[in-house]
């Protein structure tokens, strides 16, 4: 696909495809991600939006109020990939039979619970079968809808309600799952990882590529949750920036197995800068816990090196 130059102001002037009046928390990163992805749809193209159960679903289609300006289907928690596979296949058949004429795109959203964990099998199936759809994970690193329980996307040492920090616990024991790599290993045409940076160029371009590349595409978007992460709600853009500048959340894409790093910080910031504003990591800054921070930094470094290697192949 020919890559269009990003005209920020024109992009922002496009008709809004997520209506206000949904019930997501004030300052939610999830709907910032949704709006950014939907802006990449070309005007005139229709879409069917899928959604795994989660905050986004219960808040954006609370009967009889739908926030979606496009057709929308929520089915259950673990099956967004399969549900949209069915929609996309129906489109192909009805088009072949001449029952519909319009161009439709298929985009489904899931949180990390619905994507990394309970919906992984269904997602894997949809990716492997290479349906022409985009699966977007808005990753806030825990099951926020049910009250901040750990997921396999939760970073190590995070304080969650199922990995509470206590006298005998430093929070979550395990490292987060690297889902983008797992999906890239499905040999899909496009995988992109992004978050909210500056004028959203990186995310917009990745969303446009994902939507307009034929086949199954996957976007992993870090979408901070002010309640779960316990930072000042208005600080979201700074949190995202620190995630990228510390190399905790690198911006990269994988096109048909070819890995590309989209941004390399001029000076990699220490991971403390990303962790410090978040209440879920408060315990790491207590005297005597320096080794935990060190371990966290080592894990970030190791993953960054792995990524650099993948991108240099």
């Amino acid at each position: 696909m020919e890559r269009k130059t990003y005209n920020f102001k024109e992009t922002m002037s496009k008709p809004e495809r997520l209506a206000p009046g949904h019930r997501m928390c004030a300052g939610c990163g999830g709907t910032i991600a949704v709006r950014a992805v939907l802006r990449a749809l070309h005007e005139g193209d229709k879409a069917v939006i899928g959604n795994a159960t989660g905050c986004l679903e219960v808040s954006s289609f609370m009967y009889p109020y739908t926030a979606w300006e496009d057709s929308y289907i929520h089915n259950a928690f673990e099956n967004a990939g399969a549900t949209l596979s069915g929609v996309e296949t129906a489109y192909n058949v009805l088009k072949k039979k001449g029952k519909i004429n319009d161009t439709y795109k298929f985009i489904t959203f899931g949180g990390d619970g619905g994507t990394y964990d309970i919906g992984l099998q269904s997602l894997s199936g949809a990716m492997e079968r290479n349906h022409d759809l985009v699966y977007v994970c808005y990753d806030n690193g825990a099951y926020m809808n049910t009250g901040i329980q750990r997921s396999s996307a939760t970073p190590m040492y995070a304080d969650t309600t199922t990995t509470p920090v206590g006298s005998a616990s430093d929070g979550k024991l395990q490292n987060r799952k690297d889902l983008a790599s797992i999906i890239a290993s499905h040999d899909v045409p496009y995988v992109g990882q992004s978050t909210f940076i500056g004028n959203f160029k990186d995310l917009h371009q990745k969303a446009e590529k994902a939507i307009y590349t034929e086949g199954a595409c996957f976007l992993n978007i870090m979408a901070p949750c002010p309640r779960g992460w316990r930072y000042e709600t208005d600080d979201i853009m700074n949190i995202c920036k620190l995630a990228v500048e510390t190399c905790y959340w690198p911006l990269f894409e994988v096109e048909h197995g070819k890995w590309t790093l989209n941004y390399e910080p001029k000076k990699k910031l220490p991971i403390e800068d990303f962790l410090r504003p978040q209440g879920r990591f408060k315990h790491l800054f207590k005297p005597g816990n320096e080794h935990l921070l060190e371990q966290f930094q080592q894990e970030v470094d190791r993953r960054w090196e792995d990524l650099m290697f993948m991108c240099s192949r």
């Binding site: 024109e10 922002m12 809004e16 206000p20 709907t31 802006r39 004028n199 959203f200």
Partner: peptide, 18 residues
């Protein structure tokens, strides 16, 4: 500059003709 518009989680900053 419109930098306030994409960051709104609630689509509450309408943009018309840039």
């Amino acid at each position: 500059c419109l930098l306030c518009t994409p960051v709104c989680p609630d689509s509450c900053i309408p943009v018309k003709d840039m």
